[in-house]
Computed example of a mutant assay.
Amino acid sequence: MEEDPLLAVDGTALKQTGREKGIPWGVQEIKAPHAWSTTTGHRIKIGVIDTGVDFSHPDLKHSLARGINLLNRAALPHDDNGHGTHIAGTIAAANQLRGMIGVAPRSTVYPVKAFDHNGSAFVSDIIMGIDWCVRSRMNIINMSFGMKTRSKSLLHAVTNAFNAGIIIVASSGNDGKRKSVDYPAKYPQTISVGATNRLRRIAPFSNRGIHIDIYAPGEKILSSWLRGKYHEMSGTSMATSHVSGAIALLLAYQPGLAPAEIKAIMKRSMLPLRGTKAPRLTGELDVMRMIAAADR
């Protein structure tokens, strides 16, 4: 029997804020608003394996499906931490008048609550979450969490989802390491995401190096929070939600793209980062370049 280790969500530096909402800087940075006349992510289903979601948040009301609570099957996957609500907001918030807008405002988030109020989860619950996403025919799975140890059973679940044609987006971790990333981001079946800041440089906390497939905004990201509020968070978790939203835009525009094709399109269309010595190997997410690359 394999051990059943704990995983933790990848987000730090909490700050409650009443600051300007509208279109957050990360959503602007990846040029998502330029794509909305072409695609808004309509009908794309995103499984967010996390702490649940605040179903009453005005910015998320039209963006959520029921999902599943793996810690209490009888209950809705209500968020008692905040992390999952933050991730869902960046992906799909849609409240143009008074709130904020996420990357893919007409996509649908299916919250899969595997993490408790502390932001901890057992691998076995994550695997159940992945299996639920496969059975429920998600297009994308957002995994804003990680662990240091490899797990055969987690790899098996990830491979199963990949083979079912689901795109798995995973955060690389917040250890500031140059040569390693967390699992499941380390598995080649996932799209592993590092974080950038407003200067388009790799954020100091982000893991980096050859295991990262793409970078996206992850520093001081404003998004939805519990009880209808907003919070600023930093982490590769936040970067991951930008990438999941961008893939939702791409899939709504060109349905039927396989996970490997999407990874290739992303790699072809990245913007070189500032301040890196190997600009061709890695870059930052750019939705408009991605959509153009899909047409080629």
Rank of each mutant, 00 (worst) to 15 (best):
E2I: 08
D4C: 09
D4T: 06
D4W: 00
D10N: 15
G11W: 02
G11K: 04
A13Y: 13
G18S: 14
R19N: 13
K21Q: 13
W25A: 05
G26Q: 06
V27H: 06
Q28P: 00
I30R: 00
A35E: 01
A35F: 02
A35N: 02
T38Q: 15
T39Y: 02
K45S: 06
I49M: 08
D50M: 07
D54Q: 06
H57C: 12
P58R: 06
H62K: 14
A65P: 02
L70W: 12
N72T: 01
A74S: 12
L76A: 04
L76Q: 01
H78Q: 05
G82N: 09
T85R: 10
T90C: 05
T90F: 02
I91W: 05
A93V: 03
A94M: 03
A94N: 15
L97S: 13
L97H: 07
G99R: 12
I101A: 04
V103S: 09
P105W: 02
R106Q: 15
R106K: 14
S107T: 03
V109W: 10
Y110H: 13
Y110F: 15
Y110W: 14
K113N: 03
A114V: 12
H117N: 11
S120D: 04
S120C: 01
D125W: 07
D125A: 14
M128F: 06
I130S: 06
W132F: 14
C133S: 10
V134D: 04
S136R: 08
M138P: 02
N142L: 04
M143L: 15
S144P: 02
G146D: 07
K148H: 10
T149V: 12
T149G: 02
S151E: 11
S151I: 11
S153W: 00
L155M: 11
H156W: 02
V158C: 14
T159E: 15
T159P: 03
N160Q: 12
N160V: 00
F162K: 11
N163C: 04
G165R: 03
I166Q: 07
I166E: 11
I166D: 04
I167M: 04
I168Y: 09
G173N: 10
G176N: 13
K177R: 14
R178W: 01
R178M: 03
K179C: 00
V181G: 12
K186A: 13
K186D: 07
Y187T: 06
Q189T: 06
T190R: 08
I191P: 01
V193F: 13
R201S: 12
P204R: 14
F205W: 11
N207I: 08
G209N: 12
D213E: 04
K220L: 04
I221N: 06
S224N: 13
R227D: 15
G228F: 10
G228E: 07
E232W: 01
M233V: 11
M233W: 13
T236Y: 09
S237F: 05
A239Y: 08
S241Y: 08
H242L: 05
G245P: 07
A246H: 05
A248S: 10
A248Q: 06
P255F: 08
G256I: 00
L257R: 09
A260R: 09
A260P: 00
K263I: 03
A264F: 01
K267Y: 05
K267D: 09
R268M: 11
S269M: 05
M270V: 14
M270S: 00
M270E: 00
L271E: 12
P272C: 14
R274T: 12
K277N: 14
K277H: 09
R280E: 15
T282E: 15
T282G: 00
I291V: 13
I291R: 07
I291Y: 10
R296I: 08
